[in-house]
Amino acid sequence: METTSLAPSLKNIAPQQEYLLQASILDANRDVLLHRLRGLCDNAESNFETFADYEAVYVLSFLESSAVQQSQAVSFRVRHALDDPEAPDHIRYIGQAELGDRARPTLVRACLDVACSSNVREFLQEMGFKLDYDCVMKGYFFHKGRMKVTVYKIFRLLQPGKTDSSNWEPLSMSHLVELSVVAPLGQEQIGEDMKNFAEQLKPLVVLEKFDHRRLHN
């Protein structure tokens, strides 16, 4: 199949890795966290940067057996901004979390980001990808150097395809907090920097390296 060779070749274009720490915060405590982040991050004097994105995950599975389907499937995440119609769509490939050594302070996984035109959905479907799931993410965005912090809420769409806010249903009473850096291969120092930054948010949120293999569907 053509698609088997597609993913690795894409990876070779720019071998980027995402370093990731995750946590969540209850909605009631969100503002405290936002103010602390504003003080810690760059552009402290400007207002909060917000975002509202629609994300759809398209998956292509090659194997017949459903038992290994999850690990063998290739999936792409397509996002487009709901609050900025001018912005291009964005397609992202995220690899499996690297096993690596346990002492590593963050989760590390392959990652590839490409901006694209809005017909990427049709393109993926033409290639045999199917829509796996979709959601809306709405929240706040901070950066400090190359570290990116997002605090956002995840909404499920009550009716598929309709992205206006009356159709959203929050998934939980919390905001997801993510601290991530996308960098070329082999920059282990970043992990330490991220860990130090995460220390400053304790005990409000405890950003952790989350083992995604522990999660169940």
């Binding site: 999850q70 796996d132 995840i154 998934l171 939980s172 997801l176 995604h212 999660l215 169940h216």
Partner: peptide, 12 residues
């Protein structure tokens, strides 16, 4: 909630 959100975002 952390678990719910992370599994939603990574595994759907």
């Amino acid at each position: 909630d952390t678990l719910t959100l992370i599994s939603a975002i990574t595994k759907g």
